[in-house]
Design a binder for these strands. Structure first.
Length: 256
RNA sequence: UCCUUGGUUGGGAGC
């Protein structure tokens, strides 16, 4: 049954829902994972009705089943309905709570997000990061930083989230301070700074950082280049734009 | 212990 699920997963990944469904129907030994995967596929492809129908039909539901459905409603922007399902869930786990926290935070309802956050008995690094991002994206960097500092454990995504928060609000000095403070950077960290400069219209700083990232052996990606092109366009910096364009071709990302 | 759910970086298009 593992192998059936894996093949079904390939269909789903390619967006072949009909094929996945046919396989699902023909599977002699459907497990809860098969059901969950099928429900997730429909939920992510804006077919919540079908997802819900399968959810109701399935013989045994686990936490994944609930979470898959909840995140489907969140992804389709149906926060109210997502919360409604969340409230019907027999036992919330860290994923379901984090999904709702993330959705509330994104919608700007940080009070409600914080309420759930505080009520949770276990939070993990994902939960903390969702809160940090929520505050940062809504301009409350003080609260974001406070939570960030209170985190029991910080992974690279958490660092990047905090850095991006500062960068997006134009606080590049603070962003840089954290950038150099973090244990290791990845391409996302570099991009966060570069796009921050780009959004501020600080093309020279962005280009300087771009060079530096390459000295340090990081490969720029599509996001890096889009940020730079954007910065060049803002300043109508034709020469710089051409230089960046040349590097895009050189990097093999020209067709993206 | 393998298949299904939640957090971080960009311009545009779509929902």
């Amino acid at each position: 049954s593992f192998s059936w699920n894996i093949i079904m997963g390939v269909y789903i990944q390619k967006g072949l829902l009909q094929e996945a469904r046919e396989l699902f129907e023909r599977m002699p030994n459907k497990t809860v994972v098969s059901w969950n995967a099928m429900i997730a596929a429909y939920a992510q492809h804006a077919q919540l009705g079908v997802a819900l129908e399968l959810f109701r039909l399935m013989p045994h539901r686990d936490a994944f089943s609930w979470n898959v459905l909840i995140s489907g409603y969140v992804q389709q922007g149906e926060l109210k309905e997502a919360i409604h399902i969340y409230n019907q869930m027999p036992q919330h786990d860290v994923v379901s709570a984090t999904t709702i926290i993330g959705a509330l935070a994104q919608a700007g309802d940080l009070k409600e997000a914080a309420k759930i956050f505080e009520k949770m008995n276990q939070r993990d690094v994902v939960t903390w990061t969702a809160m940090v991002v929520g505050y940062a994206k809504h301009g409350n960097l003080t609260e974001a930083l406070q939570l960030f500092q209170q985190m029991p454990f910080r992974d690279m995504i958490a660092w990047n989230a905090m850095i991006s928060g500062y960068a997006q609000q134009g606080h590049l000095e603070k962003a840089l301070e954290l950038f150099w403070q973090m244990p290791n950077q990845d391409v996302v960290s570099w991009n966060a700074i570069i796009s921050g400069y780009s959004q501020q219209g600080q093309l020279n700083e962005a280009l300087q950082f771009f060079e530096q990232m390459q000295w340090k052996g990081f490969n720029p990606d599509k996001v890096t280049f889009v940020s730079l092109v954007d910065a060049c366009a803002k300043r109508t910096a034709l020469a710089e734009g051409k230089a960046v364009h040349f590097q895009i071709i050189e990097s093999g990302l020209g067709s993206d």
